[in-house]
Amino acid sequence: MALTIKEVEYVAQLARLQLNEDEKQIFAEQLSSILEYVEKLNELPTDGVEPLAHILPVYNVFRADEIRPGTPREEILANAPLVEEGQYKVPKIM
């Protein structure tokens, strides 16, 4: 399965990764060879095999509906690149 530059661009956009033209080219090649390798899985018939998403036979893990104080605002915002009025400041949306 060879990945086209267009597909690389689509995935990069989904993943919010800005790639330059060289990177696109390299990723197209590398991802193609990795995908070619994982094609190996198609050798295995898996009809009727239940997908395994959770390895532990554990269900219904809950917490009680109790409030605990959160993190003080100055503390939680301390790592933020840009803050205004106690909020995270981000550039315009559109």
Binding site: E7, V11, A12, A15, L17, E23, F27, L31
Partner: peptide, 12 residues
Amino acid sequence: KRRIMLGSYALS
């Protein structure tokens, strides 16, 4: 980046 790309692709 490579792994993020691969993973995003596999889920897309």
